[in-house]
């Protein structure tokens, strides 16, 4: 039994597509304590969603777990059946999807959809479930909850729908909330409302959050720890301050340099990461970032770098860091 709420060790997961094997996750390890907020950042296709989805058993055919162990709240995810998954989904672990327009069922009322979760996972009866649904809508800051319960998703705005999604996710007070780009489809002023709400609810209910996003601004504001993913590897992992003020991996450094800053006085030219994202069907040999890396060495093209521990929490997967560490050890 793990002491962590979430403990993923050396997870490997592939999608067996007609075009070939896509190695979506290569040796991914993550652990998360009760009440912690972890941010996973990376470009599209880097495996950030798959990591979180595999905790809920949502990586169905043609996806297959090839190696590693996953534990969540005392459950061994590896050998759970679909029936067992249904018991924890929406109950112990919930998810908010990116697009609130498509993740609600258009032919059921908001009330139906919230009550469904409550009826499924608790022994409340229909009227108690209705009462709880009303409470939840109040909790997520929707006015006139009684009226909203009778409305259909198309009658609500994007921000409201995302609030409904959060209400559904929180219906059974989960231990872990997975937020998969919860605000990408929303405007900034609405995004601010939703993020504020998530933090407030986290403090009130004490759940852990995995925040999947490509927006470095959001993770800087919300998360305690950050995992940077590239081509199915966690290339750097550390506290928010480690990642922003002491980045070690070239990809992390590149990401931070490539975003324009709102508070910059002078016009500084952006430093983009050259090249294009990896083709996951034919990933390069060695370090997947090597073809785009400015400090690429010979060994990078041959072998995947091992994990280098910078501090207790902070680690990277880069030959440069490995080299530096070996040199400093030799000196000592």
């Amino acid at each position: 039994m793990s002491e962590y709420l979430v403990d993923i060790q050396h997870e490997r997961l592939s999608f067996f597509t007609p075009a070939g094997e896509v190695k979506a996750l290569n040796d991914v390890s993550i652990h998360l304590n009760q009440g912690e907020v972890l941010g996973i950042v990376g470009e599209s296709g880097s495996g950030k969603s798959v990591t979180a989805y595999s905790l809920m058993g949502l990586t169905a055919y043609p996806g297959r777990l090839i190696g590693g162990t996953l534990e969540f709240n005392g459950h061994h995810i590896n050998d759970m059946t679909e029936k067992e998954f249904r018991k924890i989904r929406g109950n112990e672990v919930s998810i908010i999807f990116q697009d609130p327009m498509t993740s609600l069922n258009p032919v059921y009322t908001i009330g139906n959809q919230i009550e469904e979760v409550i009826l499924l996972h608790t022994d409340k009866n229909k009227s108690q479930a209705h009462e709880r649904a009303r409470e939840l809508l109040e909790l997520v800051g929707i006015n006139e909850p009684e009226k909203r319960l009778k409305q259909y998703p198309h009658e609500l705005s994007g921000g409201m729908r995302q609030r409904v999604m959060i209400a559904i996710a929180l219906a059974c007070e989960p231990k872990l909330l997975i937020a998969d780009e919860p605000t990408t489809a929303l405007d900034v002023t609405i995004q601010a409302q939703i993020l504020e709400l998530m933090i407030e609810l986290k403090n009130k209910l004490g759940m852990a959050i995995i925040m999947i996003t490509h927006d470095l601004g959001i993770v800087a504001n919300m998360c305690e720890k950050i995992a940077v993913m590239y081509a199915g590897h966690i290339v750097e992992y550390g506290t928010t301050d480690d990642i922003f003020y002491n980045p070690k991996h070239e990809y992390t450094k590149g990401l931070l340099k490539s975003i324009p800053r709102l508070d910059a006085r002078e016009h500084e030219r952006l430093v983009p990461i050259e090249g294009t994202p990896v083709d996951m069907l034919n990933p390069p040999k060695g370090c997947p970032f090597a073809p785009r890396c400015g400090n690429c060495m010979k060994i990078c093209l041959r072998e995947m770098p091992p994990v280098t521990n910078i501090s207790d929490v902070h680690y990277t997967q880069c030959w440069m860091n490995q080299k530096e560490q070996m040199e400093s050890e030799a000196r000592a």
């Binding site: 705005s157 921000g159 409201m160 405007d187 900034v188 002023t189 609405i190 995004q191 601010a192 409302q193 993020l195 504020e196 927006d215 470095l216 601004g217 959001i218 800087a220 504001n221 928010t240 301050d241 922003f244 003020y245 931070l256 975003i259 800053r261 709102l262 508070d263």
Partner: peptide, 26 residues
């Protein structure tokens, strides 16, 4: 409020900054 709503990619500034969160929708 638009400017204050933008999440700044800098944890120290982010912790200090105060958001003006607008109520309601457009």
């Amino acid at each position: 409020s638009l400017i204050s709503a933008i999440p700044i990619a800098d944890p120290v500034t982010a912790r200090k900054s105060k958001r003006i969160v607008l109520e309601g929708d457009v």
